[in-house]
Simulated scan of single mutants.
Amino acid sequence: MAIRYDSPFKGRGAGSNPDNRFEQYSRERVDDGWDSLAQTEQVPGTTLEVDSSRRVISYNQSPDVPFDRSINPYRGCEHGCVYCFARPTHAWLGLSPGLDFETRLYHKPDAPEQLRRELGRRGYTPAPIALGINTDAYQPVERRLGLTRRILKVLAECRHPLTIVTKSALIERDLDLLAPLAADNLCRVAVSLTTLDSRLSRRLEPRAAAPHRRLQTIARLSAAGVPVSVLVAPLIPVLTDAELEALLEAAHEAGACDAGYVLLRLPHEVRDLFSDWLQMHEPLKAEHVLNRIRDCRGGRDYDAAFGSRMRGTGIFADLLAQRFGKAYRRLDFPGAPSLDCSRFRPPREETPQLGLFD
């Protein structure tokens, strides 16, 4: 049973901290008559722990994503987006996909060294690596740790192609690395944009960059020669879908060369977390939003089937696809360039001996 709170915490997206689906026992807040509930409602701080994973590149065979490998420097994400599809992964750590996901973070301090070893293995075949897919590689803690930048340096050294999806303006810090990579067709960036309404964005994704700031990031990446797309994600029926055309127009004007969208996904615990958020922030629209989502998911809150989980099915989902396609063609996005895998060179071994062909 979820531990739900009566009001949202400032700067946090989730309004509850549900037990994960693997736990044997559940918890429930009980008023004992001594103001015990009020005493526990304190703004949770952020903690950082070490992720001791022995591999840094994760592989997948999903037909729904345009990459087969990715790197996630962080587990959990302080952006606090209540809709985040990655929240249920915190259950594997024995933690809650709710507030724990955005306050109890894990990082891989030796990720660059692990990456060098994995790229240097005999028989490794290069293909674009997606950086920061499960959780944002440029979330606030990156400003202090610089882990993503260290990973970028390894990829740049090896001339390895990569893609990045982010909603953080912090990516501009690394333009000195990204621009040269882009000049050799080794890098593409997608900026996630959910809404142009800053008040709604502050509640949906409290610690992510403001919408106007993300548009500035698109403009600055584009001006530096980095191919940048806009990813309207998630597209939330009733709440943000009316902005679809305006979002595409704003991104195109800022310099985006391509665009895509993903319909809101509510796997596992995200369903209840998002429902709680609706009751806290948009109670009059809550049932309308959920009913529209079910219209796109075969009457269910979520359908994980390959081929439809990203866009949905049914009349309303088809209407969204038609609207997107019409706006995309009208704006005449040129499209993102293909990445070049032929430039890859394995990392140099750390040895005092000189290379034969240096």
Rank of each mutant, 00 (worst) to 15 (best):
F316M: 02
R300V: 04
I315L: 10
F316A: 06
G335K: 10
A305P: 00
Y302E: 01
F306L: 01
G298L: 12
P337K: 13
G298W: 09
R330A: 15
R329P: 09
F333N: 06
G325C: 07
L339P: 10
I315S: 10
A305T: 04
A305V: 06
F324C: 06
D332A: 15
R329D: 15
Q322A: 10
I315A: 07
L320C: 06
A305M: 05
R323Q: 11
Y328H: 14
K326N: 03
G325V: 08
L339V: 14
A317L: 04
F316D: 04
G307P: 02
A321T: 08
L319S: 12
R311M: 04
A305W: 02
G335I: 09
D340E: 14
A321F: 00
D318W: 02
R300T: 12
R300N: 07
L339A: 14
L320T: 00
A317P: 05
G307E: 05
S338A: 15
D303I: 00
S308D: 01
M310P: 00
A305I: 00
G299V: 07
S338G: 14
L331D: 08
Y302N: 01
R309W: 02
F333D: 06
D332C: 15
R311D: 01
L320E: 01
R329M: 13
T313Q: 12
A336T: 14
C341P: 14
S338H: 07
R323Y: 06
G335A: 07
A304D: 10
G307K: 07
D301N: 11
G325F: 05
R309K: 10
P334Y: 08
D340T: 13
M310Q: 09
L320M: 07
D301G: 02
L331Q: 11
